[in-house]
Design a protein around this nucleic acid. Structure first.
Lengths: 311, 311
DNA sequence: TTTTGATATGAATTCTATTCATTAATATTT
DNA sequence: AAATATTAATGAATAGAATTCATATCAAAA
C-alpha cells in the first residue's frame, strides 16, 4: 500500500472528516454533509488507500479516528475556517455584507445557544444590524413577510411561496422531574403518566408545545399548566416539586449531572422535534444569512449533545 | 448576480488560482495544472458567478487578478501549504519518510536553483539522506539502476522499463556575448554566426550540449571549444571576450541587467530544452520524492523567469 | 439465537468537470 | 493595413469520477 502520485485530497474530504469527527459515526456524518453513508465510506477508503494509512478504526460499534485521521481533522478545522473567513471577505467586497438580521425565536430554549452565536456573528459582520425580536408572535411567517423579522427559528412552516425553511437539527424533548419524584422509577414516561401532574411550560399557546400537541392531546390528557418565562425558572419550579416539564435534552445536561433534576424519555421512541430557520427566499441568498446558518449548525453540532442532522 | 447557497470552492480551484497568480496567464496556468485553457476558463467563470465578483480582469493581453482574486490566491497559498505540511506528516506516520535522495546533475546550471531547494528539503525530511552525486556520468540511467543515485536531473531519457521521467519544465537557452561583441546588432543568432567563435561550455561531451547537438552540428559548424566548471567562470570568460556561451535564460537575468554580458535568442523560435527528473519506478512512489518534485516545480516556477510547464 | 443498527463493498447511475470545436478579441508581424 | 499568431471565452459533447443503490458483513443488544 503506497501513496498514489498526485494528491487526491479535496475540500469535500475535509468537510467529511470534520463531520466524522463531530458526529463520531459514518452515517451521522453522512447526514451532516447531505450524502449517503456509502458515499462517505468510499471517500474514506479512497483517502486511506491514497495515504497508505487507516484514518478510522472500528472500536466495537463506534468508529474512532486514528492518529492520521486526527491530523487530517486538524487540517480540516484550520482550512475550513480560513475559507469561511475569506468568503466573508469576498461577501464584503461584493457589498453584500450589509443588511439586517432580526431573529424571532419560536423556541424559547434556543436562547441557550443563540447568545454566543450572536456574539460571534457581530464580530464577523459588523455592518449587519443584528437584533432579537422579542415577545410571542402568533404568525411568524407574516412577521417575515411584513418585514418585522428576517429569520424565525422554530418548527417547520408549511411550504409557501417566498418562504424557505432551512433545516437546523433534530433534538429530543425529555421530561424533567424532581429527583424524588415518584415517576423516577420509570425509564420511559407515557401520556398517562402526566395525567395528575402540573405541566410547567413557557407562556405560549398549547399548540406550540410538542408534548401537548403530539403526546397528551392525542391521548386526551389535559394536565394543569403553569408557565415561566425562563428555562432556569422552569427548572427551579420542577426542582421544588411544583410540577414537571418537557425540555430539549441538550439544555438539561448540567442540571442532571448535578442531580438538580432528572430527565426521562417520553414515549417509546422518544419525543423528537425538528428545528428550522425560516426566511424569505430573498433573504436566503444573502451571504451573511448563509454564514449565520452554517455557523449556527456548526456550533450547535459541536456544543449541543444528542442532536442529529436533518434531511 | 448573487452567491449560490453552498460553497462550491474546492482545492482544485485554489490550485488553479495559485497557478494563475504564478503564470499571469490562463493558458500557462492551465499547462501548470495539467488541464486545458478551457477548463480553467470554466472554473474561473464558475467562481465568479458563485461569488458575484470578478476574479480576473483582462488588461489588454494579460490577465490581472482583481482584489477578490488576490484574496483567494492568498487563501490558496496558506491552504495548499498547510496541506503539504500535513501530508508530509502522514508520510512520516506511514514510515515512508526515510530513505535516500542522492541527486545526480546532468545540467550544471541547475545548481543555481537546487541549492536552496535542498536546504528546504532537509528541513522537511530530516530522516532522508540527502546528497549530491558529483562529477560527470556517461550513463546516468545505469547510475540509477545500480543504485549510485536516486534522481537524475537532466534531459529526457529514452523510455525504458523501470525508469520514469518526471517532467520539470521547459527553458530557453540563450547565447551569451560580451556587451561589445560584434554580434550584438543581431536580435537573433543563427548557426552560421558561431562559425568563427570560441564556444565556452561546461566540461561535458558534445552530445550533451544542446547548441551543438541541435543547431551547430546540423549546420555542419564546428567552432572551437573551451570549458569551465562553473557558471560564473563561463560568464567571466564571455565578459572578457574569450568566446561566447549558451546558457539557460533564467541564470542570466542578473548579469544582463548589470550589463556584464548580453543575451540573444538562438535561431528563429529559440533554442529550447526540456528538463526532467528521472528515477526508478520504485523510487517514484516515495512520498519524499513526490514532495521533492512538487516543491522543485513550485520554487522553479516561482523564482525562475521564462520557464514554461511541460506536458 | 434472533434482531437491530451500523459499516463495507461492487455495480450502476447520475452528475459535473473537462475537453472539443469554434468564436471573439488582442497583439505581433509582414 | 492586412495578415498571422496568441490568448481567452463559450456552448455542446464527452469522459470520468463521485454518489447512490442494492447487498453483504459485522458487532451489539434483545
Amino acid at each position: 500500500m503506497t501513496m498514489s502520485l498526485v494528491s487526491i485530497l479535496e475540500l469535500r474530504h475535509l468537510r467529511t472528516l470534520a463531520a466524522l469527527h463531530e458526529t463520531g459515526s459514518v452515517s451521522r456524518a453522512a447526514k451532516r454533509v447531505h450524502l449517503t453513508q456509502s458515499a462517505l465510506s468510499h471517500q474514506i477508503k479512497a483517502l486511506q488507500s491514497h495515504y497508505g494509512l487507516s484514518i478510522i478504526q472500528r472500536r466495537g460499534q463506534a468508529v474512532e479516528l486514528t492518529d492520521a485521521g486526527k491530523h487530517l481533522v486538524a487540517l480540516a478545522g484550520k482550512v475550513l475556517e480560513e475559507i469561511q473567513a475569506t468568503e466573508r471577505g469576498l461577501a464584503k467586497m461584493s457589498q453584500q455584507a450589509t443588511g439586517s438580521l432580526r431573529i424571532a425565536l419560536e423556541c424559547h430554549t434556543c436562547f441557550d445557544w443563540l447568545m454566543p452565536l450572536m456574539d460571534a456573528f457581530r464580530q464577523h459582520w459588523p455592518d449587519v444590524e443584528l437584533d432579537l425580536v422579542s415577545g410571542f408572535h402568533s404568525d411568524p411567517v407574516k412577521l417575515l413577510e411584513e418585514g418585522g423579522a428576517d429569520v424565525v427559528i422554530g418548527s417547520e412552516h408549511k411550504r409557501r411561496r417566498g418562504i424557505v425553511n432551512h433545516p437546523l437539527f433534530r433534538f429530543e424533548i425529555l421530561a424533567v422531574l424532581a429527583p424524588e419524584h415518584p415517576l423516577r422509577r420509570k425509564r420511559i414516561l407515557h401520556a398517562a403518566d402526566f395525567a395528575n401532574e402540573t405541566l410547567i411550560t413557557y407562556p405560549v399557546p398549547e399548540d406550540r408545545i410538542d408534548l401537548i400537541l403530539n403526546v397528551l392531546k392525542p391521548a386526551d390528557i389535559h394536565p394543569e399548566r403553569r408557565t415561566a418565562e425562563l428555562t432556569v425558572a422552569i427548572l427551579q419550579l420542577v426542582a421544588s416539586r411544583r410540577g414537571v416539564a418537557a425540555l430539549p435534552s441538550w439544555g438539561l445536561k448540567n442540571y442532571v449531572d448535578h442531580d438538580y433534576v432528572i430527565a426521562r424519555r417520553i414515549s417509546t421512541h422518544g419525543l423528537w422535534s425538528d428545528l428550522y430557520a425560516s426566511t424569505l427566499t430573498e433573504t436566503a441568498s444573502r451571504p451573511y444569512l448563509r454564514d449565520f446558518l452554517t455557523t449556527a449548525r456548526n456550533t450547535c453540532f459541536a456544543t449541543l449533545d444528542g442532536i442529529i442532522p436533518l434531511e
